[in-house]
Each structure stands twice: as C-alpha cells, then as structure tokens.
Design a protein around this nucleic acid. Structure first.
Lengths: 174, 174
DNA sequence: ACAACTGATTGTATTATGCAACTGGTATGG
DNA sequence: CCATACCAGTTGCATAATACAATCAGTTGT
C-alpha cells in the first residue's frame, strides 16, 4: 500500500488511477451498459479487453475505491461489481470526453448517439443519471425515489437502438 | 497513417489519443503553466517526464492535431508548441478531472488551489479561459479583444503564490 | 455424470516506459 | 575566435506493462 505519487496535483493523481487505455472503458461499460459481472465486462465491449488486464484493472479500481465488489446471492462464484460514489461522480468527465471525441474524432454514429444526447441534456440530465446510478450501485439513499421510467440509461439505449434499426434498414435497401 | 481503431466509440477514440499517464500532463503544463518549449516542458513539471517520452508524446499530439508546432523567430533551433482549438477545448475535461481528484484523492493544497478556483468559477470562467488560450495559442480570431488583465491564468497563478507564501511563513514560524 | 459457465490465473511474446548518455547545431560572453 | 552553455531531440539498454491464448478449479443446470 506504500504508494509513491509523482506529485500532489489533482490531475496527476487522477491520471495515476485512470490514466490508461482500459480503466475508463470498464467504468463506461458499467455505467452506460450496466455490465456488472466479469464475463459481461470481458465479452460485452466492442474493444475486446484481455481477461488478465480486466482482472488487474478491477483489482486496482477496487483498491482505489472507484468500484466495489460483492457476492451474487444467486451464484456462489458470481461477483457483482458496482460503482461507488467516486465512480458515479466520474459521469461529468465521461460526458465531456464523449462530447470532445464526438466533435473531433471519427466516431461511428451508433456509438456516439449516447454522447450526443448526454451533451444536449447538459448538467441537469447528468445529475438525473447520477441519481439513478446511485440507486442502482451504491444502494439506498434517504428519501430516495424509485427511478422514474424511462431512466436516462433507457433513453440512451433506446436512441442507440433507433440508430441501429435505421442503419439495418438502410443496409437492406442498398 | 493506417490507424486501426478498437471501436468508433467517442470515449474509446479519445482514450486512444489521451489515455496514458503523460499526454494530459503535457497539455496541462501548456495550458496552466504556459510552457511552450521542449525544455520548459521537460524540466518545468513536478512529475519529471523523460525526454524520449516527451518527444514521443509531442509527436503523437501533433499528429492528432491537439497541438501545433512552429519555429521560434528568436532562435533557429527553438520550437514553440501551441494548443490547437482541439487542445483548448480539453479545458472542461481538465476542470472536471481536477474537481474529482481534489474531492477524492490526497492532493496537496498548493497544487489544488487552481482546480478549486476553476471549479468554483464554473463554465463561465472556463469559457473566459478558453478565449484567452485561443488568443495566445491559435492566433487571432475576428473581433478579438486584447485579454483583460488579470487573465484567468494570472488569477490562478496568484492564488497559487498566495498559498505558497503562507505555507513558507507557517514553516518558518514552526 | 456431464457440459456449460463462473471469475479468474499462467505462460509467453510484444510493446511501452524509464533512465542516462549522447548528438548536431545555435547563441553568448570574453 | 574560442570556450561555454543551451537547444530540441535521439540512441541504447534495462525494466515494466500489455496482449493473446490456453488453462484452472469450483458451480450450476440437465
């Protein structure tokens, strides 16, 4: 546990935890794809993470308190990974990263529609999403409301499906 | 130039460019420390980057259009690195990363005071800072005003100095 | 009993990083 | 005009991180 930090700069310390090509993608899948099991995270993403890297990153994120882990009551070997409050609060960073990438990089339409809605929704939508994530991941908070349907994630997912359906139809017609 | 991307997700594409432990620190120093030369970037930061890593990252950021490079008229071998519009627009991401790190990680007071002011200043302050960065880095924009004194960077720097001065006095008294 | 699935681990090859020394060229002061 | 310091990098080498495929032991459903 004797960690040596390069400096006390908040940006540097954050990069020491999240500054690699996989950590944020894992959190992205937990956050937007609601993937909570090792196998879902391993095979669910487009990018194809290796199992040893996934295991290593989950361990590190766990040690840093960005995610938590508990047993799945339905299966003795299943573990459920959840975001902690720290993890949930990464959402605005994802929103900005998504907006930046969408503006300047060769994104695909179907994978950037969520980023677009999140950017258009602004901080109010982020706050709503974070409340839903807290309910799903960090457990009950006092005075908590059952999340109104549709949730933000459902909205984003529906938009993704709409794009995919249209694209499939276009491909068929062509 | 035949780059293979892992996916068309905006978050993934952004991480493919900026997802390492150094790229964002270099941009941070250019943005907040106004370091524009190789040597300034090499020796100016607390974290101590190696010269070959710096050279490699500058090359990559240049290729990705996040920074630009031009000759320094005052010295035939000097190069001046500048942020492009893409680079300037990373500022909100830095603001959020700084805020997150400040909240959850063991930051030092003097190196997090800038993040605090930037968080408190909110999007309006970010926009002002980005306008100043555009003037300094990407050249004149139509209808541009000479930046009002003090600039945002000067404000941040002054706050840093205040903390450092107080800390030095406290250390002397103790 | 057995196949499929669970969260991982192991071995090996490749790539990235860290560190120090070094390069060719440029300004500067005496 | 020469020594010195400075400039943006490059090179060689050791170590660390990552990628990929195969494998593991325990669990579950059939």
């Amino acid at each position: 546990m004797n960690e040596r930090h390069r400096s006390g700069c908040p940006i540097n310390l954050t990069l020491e935890i999240l500054g690699d090509k996989w950590s944020l993608l894992i959190i992205r899948d937990m956050m937007f794809g609601n993937r909570r099991h090792f196998r879902e995270l391993l095979h669910g993403s487009e990018e194809g993470i290796a199992s040893n890297i996934l295991a290593d990153r989950l361990k590190r994120l766990l040690a840093q308190g960005v995610i938590s882990k508990r047993d799945d009551p339905s299966h003795k070997q299943k573990a459920i990974y959840s975001l902690t409050e720290r993890g949930v609060e990464l959402l605005p960073i994802f929103a900005h990263i998504g907006a930046w990438g969408r503006r300047y990089l060769p994104v695909s339409e179907e994978l950037s529609i969520r980023a677009q809605l999140l950017e258009e929704g602004g901080p109010a939508m982020w706050e709503r999403f974070m409340q839903e994530l807290r309910a799903e991941h960090v457990g009950a908070t006092p005075g908590e409301q059952p999340p109104a349907a549709p949730t933000v994630r459902e909205e984003l997912q529906a938009a993704y499906q709409t794009v995919m359906t249209r694209k499939a139809k276009e491909a068929q017609e062509a």
